[in-house]
């Protein structure tokens, strides 16, 4: 019984150590003609989100009180996710541009 518990604790620790460092990924979102694509993405804490803006006008990826990333025309901009949760975000300049970012621990 005691044996099993401590083994479980060791495994848990190993998973916690491994997740943030080894598996951080870059997730790419394209903006084309005022549309975020994909509109919904799933990421883990530590991942990098990269928006590539193919339009001739600037856009933002903004979740009020959470993040506000300006993406200049024909450029990319990134955000490292630091918090789990579901974030609905929009463009401040064009509020009809909507997308969602789901972040798991």
């Amino acid at each position: 019984m005691i044996h099993k518990l401590s083994l479980g604790a060791v495994c848990g620790l190993a998973v916690m150590l491994a997740v943030p460092s080894a598996q951080a990924e870059t997730i790419r979102i394209t903006i084309d003609k005022l549309v975020f694509s994909p509109a919904e993405i799933s990421a883990a804490v530590g991942d990098v989100i990269e928006w590539q803006n193919n339009d001739v006008m600037a856009h933002t990826a903004t979740a009020k009180g959470e993040f506000d990333v300006v993406i200049p025309p024909k450029k990319t901009a990134t955000l490292t996710v630091s918090k789990a949760g579901t974030f609905d975000y929009t463009c401040r300049f064009h509020p009809n541009m909507k997308a969602r970012l789901q972040v798991r621990q």
Binding site: K33, L34, D55, M57, F93, H94, P95, N96
Partner: peptide, 11 residues
């Protein structure tokens, strides 16, 4: 694209 832009500006 212009329509989406104008709709965004309207909002």
């Amino acid at each position: 694209t212009g329509l989406k832009l104008f709709q965004g500006h309207q909002q």
